[in-house]
Simulated assay, not measured.
Amino acid sequence: MAAGAERKPVLEMVQANGSDDSCVTFVLHEEDHTLGNALRYMIMKNPEVDFCGYSITHPSESKINFRIQARSTYTRP
Rank of each mutant, 00 (worst) to 15 (best):
T25N: 07
L28P: 09
A2T: 06
G53Y: 12
Q15D: 03
C23F: 15
T73W: 12
D32Q: 02
A38N: 12
N65A: 06
V10L: 11
G36I: 01
V49G: 01
G4F: 03
D20A: 10
F51H: 07
P59A: 02
C52R: 01
I43G: 00
S60R: 04
M1L: 12
S72M: 07
I64E: 03
G36Y: 00
Q69H: 13
V24T: 02
L35Y: 02
E61P: 05
S62A: 12
D50H: 15
M44F: 10
Q69P: 06
G18S: 03
N37Y: 09
V14Q: 12
T57D: 15
D32P: 04
I56D: 13
A38G: 05
I43D: 02
N17G: 14
F26A: 00
M1D: 02
N46D: 04
A5R: 05
P47W: 02
Y54K: 00
V27G: 13
H29C: 07
H58W: 11
R67G: 13
P9G: 10
V49R: 00
A3I: 06
R7E: 14
G18Y: 02
T75P: 05
A3N: 03
L39K: 00
S19E: 13
S55Y: 08
F26M: 01
E30D: 12
E48L: 06
T73P: 12
A5Y: 08
D50F: 09
A2I: 08
R67Q: 14
N65V: 12
E61A: 05
A5P: 07
A3Y: 09
K63S: 14
E48C: 15
T73M: 10
P77N: 01
E31M: 09
D50V: 11
K63W: 05
Q15G: 08
A16Y: 08
L11Y: 05
P59H: 06
Y74N: 00
V14N: 14
E48V: 15
D21N: 03
R71C: 05
D20M: 11
G53Q: 06
N46Q: 11
R40P: 09
L28E: 04
V27Q: 07
K8Q: 14
S60E: 12
G4M: 03
A38M: 02
R67S: 09
H33K: 04
N65I: 15
